[in-house]
Amino acid sequence: MTEPLLDVRNLDLVLSRRGGNVPILQDISFQIMPGETYGLVGESGSGKSVTSLAIMGLLKKPLKVSGGQVVFQGQDLLKLRPRRMRDLRGDRVAMIFQEPMTALNPLSTVGRQIAEMYVLHQGKSWREARRLAIDALDSVKVPNPERRVGNYPHQMSGGLRQRVVIAMALACDPDLLIADEPTTALDVTVQAEVLRLIKELCAARGTAVLFISHDLGVIASICQRVGVMYAGCLVEENDTVALFSNPRHAYTRGLMGALPRLGSRLTHGRQRLVDIDSVIADRSVLTKTRFITPRGAANGESA
């Protein structure tokens, strides 16, 4: 069995306040294998984004990790000095966010922002970095890269901006890409293009992806393995096909029943959508059970 690229072990995270800590994440454990696309799915406030921030060492007070390890390529990121962590970010681990405009500097051309990655992390000259930036724009299928390299972010559409952010993220060939709702702000057809792009590029380079989304459909279309988060807990984890065809946890089942499915009305007529609150009277029991099925063992026993 190969070593996992990222091994999150029993991660606990709290919001520290006078008078005691409020638990935000409880005992989160999951592994991402090299080249694997792993999805974290959950509703607002389930803790999926804060998990990714904890991995990247980007938590702000009053949030803090209170236990567990984040082992990346054999070293515990939580013990890394801030300086070493900064070198790692953008180089070995890269991130893309929902809103590309916030990730881009409006006062600088996109070419310069991509080139910066090569200058800072790989010590290239600006002249060479600019050439590499054009190649990077070309690789994310931005039309006319020679011309676009001189564009400012506001001169581009949302879909193009997100491509620029992807080009920046993949510039240094990271081993892990963390994508936090990267297509949520985009139109359906643009979303499909950006998803295809992430899929193709990461498969070609062997980049592992931690893909965070609230959208079960997006998760199903891009991930090999999925963890379902609810109220700060990872309540179910399984290979994608097994998870969607045979959800075992009550919350996962509720979530899937709450989703209008394309084509379902044609085959089954209009079914009333599942109202999780009426199916599960006491939501507090949901975090008490967990169904973690090992990789490749779709019908294994729960851990």
């Binding site: 199903a220 279309s221 994608t240 969607f244 499915r261 394309l262």
Partner: peptide
């Protein structure tokens, strides 16, 4: 449209 059934 990203739909779990279609993707699966």
């Amino acid at each position: 449209i990203p739909d779990p059934d279609v993707a699966i």
